[in-house]
Design a protein around this nucleic acid. Structure first.
Lengths: 347, 347
DNA sequence: CTGAAAGCGCTTACAG
DNA sequence: CTGAAAGCGCTTACAG
């Protein structure tokens, strides 16, 4: 680098003020002046510094995103939607992949703060005291993808209801012994709420919850495989269906069953959660709770823009808005109605 | 916000110079002074502005990454590795998802330039005149993930040889009618080179290339499905195996075959390319060319750091270094040796 | 060991 | 319509 606005001004024979005006197309400048400036810019291959501009304007047009696992197709799809929506509004994306490390979240929140990002998207669902403290102390526009109980602006689906729907769906298909491969209980929505939805549906339909057919994983494929392996070893034959808290775990479970010569849905029915790419790749296709990833991305950006707007006008007393989007139970081919056969259970 | 270094200095009763010294731990300051400063920082919840620092230091610690499709597991995995390696060195990641749009590449290269990123990673493989022009004019440290013929620093595998190996593997298993689901010929490596590797292997082994069993896709699952559908409709029964230029296309092809009641590898053998997550999820497991994604990420960062170092010392006359990493043909269960049965072909 | 002051590259009242 | 000058929040020679 090295060519700056001053150089352009010199070459064009005008003031830096005028060059700045041409660049920012705000106030009117004469055609002649504009032409001279454009020529000088071209000639010098001048690229204005957004760093200097940001410092002066107190606005970076940067959005920081904290994402637990970018290799998750579900999360990457949402990120991609956020990026696209943001790009159309002239914002750039600072991305921090967190790899399940809660301490890193605080570290990156601080970096974002130091980078003076205009807003933050927090896709992480685990909380610790440091995170809580940061969020209390710093009033930077922020949208979360889970109900953290901190009265923050949120975009999400109703995880409780979605899990309830999934479980009730199996029950209505005649299943009464439904295993669950749940998530991480430290995750407030994807973990806890989905688990609670499962419990509530069982309760409402008069099914006694049996903890021996419930396992807790990390949403990834490998853990679905491993936990299904455990379930088959320790409780095999005692359940007719499985509800997994993520599609990846559902797919892992299906693969595990295949390796045990069990057929889905003939021997065991499976329902997943997310509606990611894999759910359509696996055979049989996975019946699952579809999350509206495009809408999640868009709503996140819209909400963030609102907050940034408010922030610019120093009116930050609004109560935190929560956007709850609709999920959809998409029937594919991994669940069977077992009314007619009575199940292969004793009971 | 609003608290700046001056405020800290005032509260601590020292100069801004001293606050800056405490912050940057460069020169020695007395314990007493440091303590006062730290207290003031704590009390005011001060967060230094990296924007101001960047402007002054002429260094942003920002790396821009242009990625064609972040929802591709292969690319996301590499990005994740880059992010992690970079994070440990104190760099942050500016990400631009390009969605196959060559024009957007130039747009984002310019944004990166304006953001004064210290370096750029370009995972895109298509070139146009605007991109070429940008790369010529601007000497910002940059690492590409493909041989673009522009003498740029590069990290990649030998796509030609890898594709050659994949094809030769099938040939040695007795296949002589090998369909190919290739990539985009505008992509210099993943597209062209893999195609050329296939052609070369066929030639070396005395196999006449038949263009009627070659198709060109976009690496994504859906195109693999669609093109396999075409192949079956137009040339079904005339080939015993398929080489796909990406695992995603290979999986799409396998699913298509499944929907046609064709079994892999009994009826048709399939070999993929990448070694992504899906290749281990699909049944049968996919025999594929494994790319070393972790090493690609690490080598990319190392090379970039070298370039940035050189750039800082204004010695940019080094010839562009190219790092070629080893691929590996990983045998799983999707290819069959057909010597013993002679194939179900006439020939 | 500590501080006053210049300057990084812009924007934006203010004046003309 | 145009320009001179102050200032955004830091760092860094330079002097003491």
């Amino acid at each position: 680098m090295g060519v700056k606005i001053k150089d352009v001004a010199r070459v064009a024979g005008v003031s830096v003020t005028s060059v700045s005006r041409v660049l920012n197309k705000g106030e009117h400048v004469s055609e002649k002046l504009e032409k001279k400036v454009r020529q000088a810019i071209e000639q010098l291959n001048y690229s204005p510094s957004l760093i200097a501009k940001s410092l002066k304007r107190n606005k970076t047009n940067l959005i920081g995103v904290i994402i637990p696992d970018i290799t998750s197709n579900f999360q990457a799809t949402i990120l991609s939607n956020i990026e696209e929506t943001l790009g159309r509004r002239g914002y750039n994306l600072l991305v921090s992949n967190i790899v399940e490390d809660t301490d890193k979240v605080v570290k990156y929140l601080n970096v974002f703060q130091e980078m003076r990002v205009d807003g933050i998207v927090l896709m992480h669902e685990k909380l610790n005291d440091h995170i809580r403290l940061f969020l209390e102390k710093n009033q930077i526009p922020l949208v979360v993808h889970a109900e953290l109980g901190l009265n923050l602006p949120t975009v999400m689906i109703d995880d409780f209801k979605a899990a309830y729907d999934a479980t009730a769906y199996l029950i209505r298909k005649g299943h009464r012994r439904i295993a669950m491969i749940a998530g991480d209980m430290r995750d407030l929505c994807a973990g806890r709420k989905r688990y609670e939805g499962y419990l509530a549906a069982c309760k409402d339909y008069g099914i006694t919850v049996d903890e021996s057919i419930i396992r807790f994983g990390d949403y990834k494929l490998a853990s679905g495989y491993r936990l299904m392996n455990e379930l088959l070893a320790e409780a095999g034959g005692s359940f007719t269906s499985v509800f997994a808290a993520s599609d990846d775990m559902a797919v892992g479970a299906i693969n595990c069953m295949a390796d045990h010569q069990l057929r889905v849905p003939d021997d065991i029915s499976v329902i997943g959660f997310d509606g990611n790419q894999m759910s359509d790749v696996i055979r049989p296709r996975l019946t699952t709770i579809q999350q509206p990833m495009d809408k999640i991305g868009q709503a996140t950006v819209e909400l963030l823009m609102e907050l940034i707007e408010q922030n610019d006008h120093a009116q930050r007393s609004h109560p935190a808005r929560t956007i709850v989007l609709e999920h959809e139970l998409v029937e594919k081919a991994s669940c069977r109605d077992i009314h007619e056969r009575g199940g292969f259970l004793k009971s």
